[in-house]
Amino acid sequence: MKNLFDAAVADEVKARLQRLEPQSERLWGQMTVAQMVAHCAMSMQWAVGDTVPEKGPLPARVMGRLVKPLVLRNDDLMRKHSPTIKSLIVTDERDLDKERVRLAGLIDRFAAGGAVGCTGNPHSFFGKMTPEEWAILMYKHLDHHLRQFGV
């Protein structure tokens, strides 16, 4: 399964990230391309432990623990219009180039850190996760949003 601990996968994601343009049109959702890159960087900050995810509502946490094995068991794509926790919603204007540099740096840091550099904090929806689960989820999340903008 693809995951961000694999250097080749991380490089492929960063190459796709570089193909985004300010005029890239979204295929679904509401964020601009710069807001999406900022959103992805914020989720990567969870994975490297820079920020601690807040707990989601109890019903969502229960649902997350039930669906986690389904989401992480194979290379199936994340569904369009998947819900987002409020703290990761970006509504202000962002600079695409700055956000792209920030996200690429976080991807590099996560990939280079491997399992020991990964957070031990639980995910707000999926709960407790192994470093390998974080690596799979972060790849799937980035892939989802890069596909959202056609790259």
Rank of each mutant, 00 (worst) to 15 (best):
M1W: 01
K2A: 13
D6W: 03
V13G: 03
K14Q: 14
A15R: 14
R16V: 10
L17W: 07
L17C: 12
R19M: 15
E21H: 15
Q23E: 15
Q23S: 15
S24C: 10
E25V: 14
L27N: 15
Q30I: 11
M31W: 14
V33G: 07
A34N: 03
M36Y: 04
M36E: 11
M36N: 10
M44K: 01
T51W: 03
V52W: 05
E54W: 11
G56Y: 00
P57F: 11
P57G: 04
M63R: 09
V67Q: 06
V67L: 11
P69K: 03
P69S: 04
V71N: 00
L72Q: 03
L72H: 00
R73T: 05
L77V: 14
M78W: 00
R79F: 09
H81D: 15
P83I: 00
P83T: 02
I85G: 08
I85N: 11
S87K: 11
T91M: 02
T91A: 03
E93C: 02
E93F: 00
D95K: 05
D97E: 15
E99S: 09
V101H: 08
A104N: 08
G105A: 02
G105H: 04
G105F: 01
G105W: 01
L106T: 02
I107T: 05
R109Y: 01
F110M: 03
F110L: 02
A112K: 02
A112G: 01
G113T: 07
A115W: 07
V116W: 08
P122Y: 08
S124K: 00
F126W: 02
P131A: 09
A135E: 00
K140W: 04
K140E: 01
K140M: 10
H141C: 05
D143C: 13
Q148H: 11
